[in-house]
Design a binder for these strands. Structure first.
Lengths: 240, 240
DNA sequence: GCCGATTTGTCCGTATGTATC
DNA sequence: CGATACATACGGACAAATCGG
């Protein structure tokens, strides 16, 4: 059940677009029509539309209407967008997921690592290395660093299950913002040892800074992906 | 000069954050303070803040304030984010850019290509292949398809300069939304012929669907990047 | 633990500007 | 030119979260 009104409207319209009830290239009902339909103010409708516009579902055209630009994606694509846990991603793609913890220890950030990661020198961190398997193939090598102070009770067993679930359900901490960088790097010896590289000499690397609901960075992660199952989606809008 | 009021406020605050006038981890002045400072309504301030939040500059905390989570990026990073022309990217990174057109012809979308690209079967398209050089190294192989009907006057000379400039300045057409997919693919024979791969056997591939201000898809592009200078940035916020 | 002040989150109604047809 | 549709802006109201006394 959506808490906010605009969210319900957002979901309703989104669903109709995905069901192609509002088909690709068609114009949505006008804002005034939607106001009448949902019994709300103009601002509330516009808020829902803004969200859909951000996600690349629609594009408003001043004086004309709101065009649907959503097209259903091919079912084979493996999407790593938004902030999603490994488990969520696996489930959505109907794949069997296994996680193996290959390192679990405490480290202290030195000057150099602080600059790289964004932590402060002297911060005590959990260093966790995990290999992710999908359908028996080792595809992702994750190296996470967590501020120890925020999760003193972390264990290898939790790391093998889902750290995010632990953070959100056990600790009641909310993950809000995630800043990511995507690059391609040559595979290291360690990549070759840990991953099924399938002949590739490169990996896709996602570097991640995660902030909790207090605006504090508590996680720094580098994920190294075997290229076959890696896909990253994005929508950008150009500033006027 | 910003047309809209909220945009001026957005830029002002953004600048202060980048100058670390509002430093990392600090709280912004409260909305009421900003209202007084900029002489505007609450909605207008909030609109500016929403934009900054989307871009990962700030994170609002209900009941507490708005935390700055922006940290200046290292100067070596080469960012290909937003919708930016090749020239804009080169200029921002102080690199000398050259473009060579290696293919320029008309094609008609068949059934298969229509499914891949999102064009309609039978659409007449410009097919343009270009190699991008930065500081003398061939780093990017672009293959663009444009709806011919929208740009009948396209020439190889324009393609060698800047097609986006032509579209926006000459044709007065506005580019609004761009949907992108990022993957990593094994380098092809053609990649090896055209690019300075520096020993890599992979390329980063960005697949792009571009919509104009009428919400019509008029461009489909696949850009193949040599890994060394490739970086893609993104900010995600988790839904409640 | 409670209360009140502060701060952000949501929603409403209205007015005016601008682009399209 | 007028009607319609989206864009911007204002002001007000109440809810929800935080924090200090």
């Amino acid at each position: 059940m959506p808490k906010a009104k605009f969210e319900g409207i957002y979901r309703s319209i989104k669903q109709k677009i995905e069901a192609q009830d509002y088909p690709y290239q068609s114009l949505l009902p006008s804002e005034n029509t939607l106001i009448a339909e949902y019994g709300c103010s103009r601002n509330t409708v516009r808020r829902a539309l803004a969200e859909l516009s951000d996600e690349g579902y629609i594009q408003p055209i001043q004086g004309k209407g709101v065009r649907v630009i959503y097209q259903p994606v091919g079912k084979t694509t493996f999407i790593i967008g938004g902030i999603e846990t490994f488990q969520e991603t696996a489930r959505r793609n109907h794949l069997h997921a296994v996680t193996k913890v290959t390192r679990f220890e405490t480290v202290v950030a030195d000057e150099k690592f602080a600059r790289e990661s964004g932590f402060a020198p002297g911060d005590e961190l959990w260093a966790v290395e995990r290999v992710r398997y999908l359908d028996g193939k080792a595809l992702i090598l994750d190296v996470n660093y967590f501020l120890k102070e925020f999760m003193p009770g972390l264990t290898p067993e939790i790391a093998a299950r889902s750290i995010y679930e632990y953070i959100e359900n056990e600790l009641g901490m909310q993950i809000v913002t995630s800043k990511r960088k995507m690059t391609v790097e040559r595979a290291t010896i360690r990549d070759e040892q840990r991953l099924d590289l399938n002949g590739y000499d490169c990996v896709a690397v996602i570097t991640n800074h995660t902030f909790n609901s207090d605006g504090l960075m508590f996680e720094y992660t580098r994920s190294r992906h075997q290229p076959d199952y890696f896909c990253f989606q994005d929508t950008a809008t150009r500033k006027k």
